[in-house]
């Protein structure tokens, strides 16, 4: 890690705030999935593990995406280089929207089927 001495390139710390927003979204998903999995045990037994996996796997993916995007955005801002990282947000954003829909559908099934 040689990035410790990077100068502040943006006083608004946009890249950092965006990375943190991705990270707290991932944490909310992971915690939600773990708690939901635990709450589902009385009604669904071992099947509850599916809920945990469905929430934790996307959360880990989101964390990794945020890490890569932060690196890329930070480097682009630092070098005033190609900001392609910022402009290729469509994929992760679409994927996370789908994950959000899926979480809500699983919750709907849980409430209706329990």
């Amino acid at each position: 890690m040689t990035r410790g001495s990077d100068p502040v390139v943006d006083l608004g710390l946009q890249a950092e705030r965006t990375a943190l927003a991705w990270q707290r979204t991932a944490l909310a998903m992971a915690v939600g999935a773990l708690v939901a999995g635990r709450l589902a045990v009385p009604a669904f037994g071992a099947v509850s593990l599916v809920v945990v996996v469905l929430g934790v796997v996307p959360a880990v993916v989101v964390l990794e995406v945020s890490r890569r995007r932060y690196r890329a955005v930070h480097d682009a801002l630092r070098t005033r280089g190609d900001l392609a990282a910022i402009r290729s947000a469509g994929g992760p954003i679409a994927a996370l929207s789908c994950a959000g829909l899926m979480v809500a559908l699983v919750a709907l099934a849980f409430v209706l089927l329990r």
Binding site: T25, A28, M29, G32, V35, A36, L39, A40, A43, G100, V103, A104, A107, F110, V111, R114
Partner: peptide, 14 residues
């Protein structure tokens, strides 16, 4: 969205 879903699930699950 996650907070809304959590509220709904918690109402029933708890």
């Amino acid at each position: 969205s996650l907070a809304l879903v959590a509220a709904g699930v918690a109402l029933e699950a708890l």
